[in-house]
Amino acid sequence: MLTLQRRHLVGHDILLARHGNHICSMRVDRPNGRVVALLDDGTLDSAPNVIAPDLDLPLGVDSLLREDWKLLAAMSGAAAAFAALMVGAAVVIGNALGETASLEILSAYPPF
């Protein structure tokens, strides 16, 4: 099942288990795949951010955009083209009527 949630960082759990309430702040070092923590006494500690490199993690929104951007772009383009076609058809129909009263009725009609 596809879940769109933020991936849980293993390094946070490891550092919390090691140091508990002595952690002032944590940051993710993405290039090295680690989580770095600043401790109360000013020292730094780090932990790896993965359990196993070949572990299949649930997909997040960023991975969906990275993998399916062509499909999303094509569908967005098709929706925009369809909307432009409908607006153009409404303009053509409005101009074909020729009367200003009918144009006012078409422009004043609520969309809901």
Rank of each mutant, 00 (worst) to 15 (best):
V35K: 00
L103M: 09
A17W: 01
R18H: 02
N49S: 05
G98I: 04
T3V: 15
A17P: 01
G60H: 01
G77V: 02
L9I: 04
T100M: 05
V87S: 00
H8G: 03
D40L: 15
L103T: 02
I105M: 11
S102E: 06
L106H: 03
D54I: 02
Q5E: 15
T100A: 07
E99P: 01
R34C: 13
L72M: 15
V10Y: 08
A96E: 09
N49V: 02
L71G: 02
I23R: 06
N21V: 06
I14T: 07
G98T: 04
N49L: 01
R6M: 15
N49F: 02
L106G: 03
G88K: 06
L39D: 10
A96W: 09
V87Q: 02
A90Q: 03
Y109H: 13
K70F: 11
V10G: 00
H8N: 07
T100G: 04
T3Q: 10
G20D: 12
S25I: 02
V87I: 05
G98Q: 09
G94M: 07
I93L: 11
A89D: 11
A81C: 00
A81K: 03
T43S: 15
T3L: 13
L106V: 04
A37L: 05
D41P: 06
R34T: 15
L97W: 07
H19L: 02
L4M: 06
P58Q: 03
V10R: 08
P111E: 08
P48V: 14
S102T: 10
L57E: 08
G98K: 05
V50R: 07
I51D: 07
A47L: 12
N49K: 01
I14D: 00
S76K: 12
L9K: 04
D41E: 13
A80W: 12
G33S: 07
E67A: 13
L57M: 05
P58N: 04
H8D: 08
P31F: 08
M75C: 05
R30F: 06
W69Q: 13
I93V: 13
P58R: 03
P48K: 10
E104T: 03
A17E: 11
A89S: 11
A89M: 12
P110T: 10
R27K: 12
A79N: 08
L55F: 08
F112I: 03
R27W: 09
M1L: 13
V61G: 02
A84I: 06
S46P: 00
R7G: 07
A90E: 02
V10H: 11
D56W: 00
A108Q: 08
L2Y: 09
I14R: 04
D40H: 14
T3E: 11
P31H: 07
R18I: 00
A74L: 12
S102K: 03
G20W: 03
L72S: 04
P111Q: 10
L65H: 10
D54K: 05
H22S: 15
R6A: 15
T3Y: 10
D54G: 02
V35L: 04
S46V: 01
I14Q: 00
